[in-house]
Nucleic acid binder design. Structure first.
Lengths: 235, 235
DNA sequence: TAGTGGTCTAGACCACCCT
DNA sequence: GGGTGGTCTAGACCACTAA
């Protein structure tokens, strides 16, 4: 169950960046230096750097090097990784509904495949805030089968994905998202502390995992008045 | 000015998919077959397939092959490529403002760097519809310096990016986006044929190009009532 | 000119899927 | 067992940047 080398390098470098040991504007060690440090080839180093670049953490310049990028005050949500990983500090998470066996929501915007609908499902709901400001309501549904005992777990670092990875070896491999601008219903408006009818962002997500056939379905409702949703993408 | 081999393979395969010569559910030729067909190594083939996968056109399964994915009825905008490339057919584009030298818009949500603000800029505005339904107002700003004669050009296939590529060798390398849900102002509402005050999606984009320092700034206003904005992302 | 990242070759071994 | 994709090695040449 060991992660591939390129992912270990990626995680190590990302850790350095997130802990602030390499600051925005600084350059990473050159690819050849990394090869020497980790005793691996450039192909593997470059695969790690490719992912850091695609998720917007570094910027590469031909002939110069790989520079750590500035963070922006937004919820870097649209790439695959979760909330806590992309946003900075100050994130507070409260459960509105603890993980429990439930029915699949009938009108999910991205429909689960038929096979999954026949199986029992686990649901939970959280409210995520930056400081004192609520910014997002998060709902998740996924088949109970692949994660026995999930309802009795405590989350690692408040991170759903980290918990899945450590306890079940399930990794997120990709996602598919749909986005709408809608009016906040009363209940939503109250939770997000906006006026009823205010425009809010609705995001429906299907996450793909390393477990073929095990998908996670999420629906997010976001107050973007102060924190827009952010996204970076590089070829 | 020749494109790298992996990009040629990528473009060729994408063309096959978009022209419908390989249908959703079908498998691409295996990596080894592609190596033989194009007389290149697997590293290069895989780089082409990586990009198709990241932009959500194919799905790879260990031990099986690379399958073309289903298209969805949404505006696949959030990845780097433009509108026409990701949405299907039926896209109609009308200029509200033809390309012309203008001032930079003062309150762009993603600010151009200081150096660019000192230079003259070209602006144009388009309304994009699917069939008879207007779905998006698109505004673009970029420095005039790098694209002499741009205001006299006609667009290739109604595609801004294709035009930049063919006439100036400028390729899109990445983008950075911010997304809000806002209320439509009167003028916007009229163009999008929604009620004033309806929720619409606002997307601000900075595109990075192969020309260092040449960035394109876009602001989009989208009616998501019928067509949500879509996005796919894979590690 | 020395060092950097961008592209590419020609192999290898493995895990996974199907028959 | 034969074919597939996933990972990795050990090189090479090139274009770009900076001193």
């Amino acid at each position: 169950m060991s992660l591939p080398r390129y992912r270990q390098i990626h995680d190590y470098l990302l850790g350095q960046i997130q802990k602030g040991e390499i600051l925005p504007g600084d350059y990473l060690p050159s690819e050849n230096e990394l090869c020497r440090s980790f005793s691996i080839t450039r192909t593997t180093v470059r695969k790690a750097l490719d992912e850091l670049q695609k998720s917007g953490f570094i910027e590469r310049q031909h002939g110069k090097g790989s520079m750590v990028r500035e963070r922006r005050a937004s919820l870097g949500l649209l790439n695959v990784k979760g909330f806590s990983e992309a946003v900075g500090q100050d994130v507070v998470t409260a459960f509105l509904q603890y993980p429990a066996e439930k029915e699949w929501k009938k009108d999910l915007s991205i429909s689960p495949d038929g096979a999954q609908l026949l199986m029992p499902c686990i649901h939970f709901e959280r409210l995520r805030s930056v400081g004192a400001e609520p910014v997002m309501i998060e709902n998740n549904w996924f088949p109970a089968k692949a994660v026995p005992g999930f309802t009795d777990l405590t989350f690692i670092d408040e991170s759903f994905f980290k918990t899945l990875s450590r306890h079940y070896g399930i990794e997120i491999k990709g996602s598919e998202q749909l986005i709408w601008s809608i009016e906040a219903e009363n209940k939503v408006a109250a939770l997000l502390k906006v006026l009823a009818g205010s425009p809010v962002l609705k995001i429906a997500i299907r996450f793909y995992t390393s477990h073929p056939g095990f998908h996670i379905y999420s629906e997010l409702l976001c107050n973007t008045q102060k924190y827009p949703i952010g996204n970076r993408y590089f070829l």
